[in-house]
Nucleic acid binder design. Sequence first.
DNA 1: CGAAATTATTTGATCGATCAAACTTTTCTT
DNA 2: AAGAAAAGTTTGATCGATCAAATAATTTCG
Lengths: 349, 349
Amino acid sequence: MGGFPTVTDVALAAGVSRQTVSNVMNSPGIVRADTRERVEAAIKELGYRPHASARRLRTRRSSTIGIRLDPTIDGISGSVLDRFLHALTEQADALGLRVLLFTATSPEDEITQFRRLNDGADVDGFVLTSTFAGDPRTRWLIENGISFVTFGRPWGVDDLNEPQHLWVDVDGWSGLHEATRAQQEGGARRIAYIGWPSPSGTGDERRRGWYDAMVLRGDVSADDLARLEVVTTDGVSQGTAAMQWLRQNAGQIDAVLCASDSLALGAMIANPERVPVTGYDNTPVAAAVGLSSVDQAVDEVAAGVLELLTGEFGGQVHGAPESEEPRHRLITPRLVVREFAAIPMDVPQ
Amino acid sequence: MGGFPTVTDVALAAGVSRQTVSNVMNSPGIVRADTRERVEAAIKELGYRPHASARRLRTRRSSTIGIRLDPTIDGISGSVLDRFLHALTEQADALGLRVLLFTATSPEDEITQFRRLNDGADVDGFVLTSTFAGDPRTRWLIENGISFVTFGRPWGVDDLNEPQHLWVDVDGWSGLHEATRAQQEGGARRIAYIGWPSPSGTGDERRRGWYDAMVLRGDVSADDLARLEVVTTDGVSQGTAAMQWLRQNAGQIDAVLCASDSLALGAMIANPERVPVTGYDNTPVAAAVGLSSVDQAVDEVAAGVLELLTGEFGGQVHGAPESEEPRHRLITPRLVVREFAAIPMDVPQ
DNA sequence: CGAAATTATTTGATCGATCAAACTTTTCTT
DNA sequence: AAGAAAAGTTTGATCGATCAAATAATTTCG
């Protein structure tokens, strides 16, 4: 009755010592088979569950990773992070890891939180999202020897190969390249691109994917290519405006690619000719209104993040400095093609 | 050098005992002022942080609440839960509580997770979302004496006043009622409603809010009122279809209210006359495209959830059985009015 | 003023698990 | 078959904090 059973209770029931019970759970290999079975039976019988905090205290390991929950940024694209969070939680669970949330109002505040969670032994490491050039957070974590992996490559000049910085990212170039090729194979020649102002790490990558594919094909002049590109900040109404500009100034348009689903949604609205529009992020909104979109494959990202993080936990960080294992993962996104059908534009006939 | 400072280190530095240090942190009132200051100085000096797991082991309290991260359901409306999660994390933080995530594939699986997290002393209680009639989860939690609060009232017949079931919900009736009144005051008389099929706890509530306001005003006949209502499942294309149906069959329409932003987005697309459309949930999509919407006030919900949960932690559950404190909170949502301006429907002039 | 009451602080035990090292049993060598 | 090596199991100590009870310091009051 008195609370939950402990290792001692299990040991008593199975007729072995505490440590053997512990071994059955943590290094089953070193326990003789028949003993192990007896202990496992007792565990089941008593409904024993290890006390997570006690274990953490002793092992100095929390089996928990911390992640900051961003304030929903622009709204539509923010859902990528939600899906990532979900995938991360799910896969972490399968590895026996927990995901602890926290919030922060600024990078500096986030560093304070890092310190708090780390000092309190609440987490073993962190997952960072939305990194930016000269990010103070990664530097601080490296300096303090705290494990972390970023979703998003480091954008600083020298940082890309910093061995202490593990990262996973999605290959935006490849995503836009594939999207462009797909349209070209579908017969489109004059493919427009609505993107973000440079410099923007991710934005420039994506643009280059479109640009390279267009140049590779080579059936649009450089002048025309310039006319097929619109630069604008992110947002639905910006997408609408950009699309209107294109229709007036770019001549014939066979397809439109966008740097985000927000822009794509906007573009689609100002699009009575139903030119195929492709967005980026494959957000729920894209699915709902029937937009093609480049899917960031958050499952693979989450898997990569956990692989790197647990590899690190394995203790090889200070151990084998020249391990062959790569320090990052570049995930190839998937193009999701949808028909416009879902959204019957209601234009008076 | 050797790891982080402990209470003992602080005690040594301040020239007091471990326990006094502990008291300074947990019951500062019983420590003499000058002693307290000395200890606080030492804490600051050494950069001491209590070891969370050690404390949890001893106090048998984790200061952590568990919440299931739902798979993004319909996509657009799913973001309400994200915002709630964010608000919850932020406010929990201010109370010294942590938020731990988990996933589950079914209610049964979720119960398994409850057991795991509770037995392992990982969490002190749970927050449940998306409750439904006859929910097995709440019953199980009550039977096992585990603290929890639901976001969403219990929909079962007798459950509403079950004293063990603490809940916070948003008053959907009031939200739609206010939205209807706002349109009426703006001069609209024939206000249509696009809702979900009955029975649906939340859906029926919202519909009734519209209905009651319409009847109260009394300038639309019962027959007409019936024609102004469309029932459909949730989704953007369903919203579009419903709007088209209304335009053909409902006669003059001054405004349209919807049970969700998904429906509202769909309705708005099939709306060249620019009849005002109001959605529900105030999702980022609504903000992006300029839809009016009923905001669920997730901040208040989160505050209510934590109030109830920590009140419970305070230990009065088995203590004062007839406490005057209400066992639930009903939050009144806010109507957010937006102009259509953000989305210039691109109809050929 | 000195004993009782009150307040402040310290000491020893404990939460539940794992580590490190000691001990016992089994298996391998020659 | 005796001794060494390996495998399996047990014991005592420990992680860092708090609880409970004991002690010390201070205040109250007859």
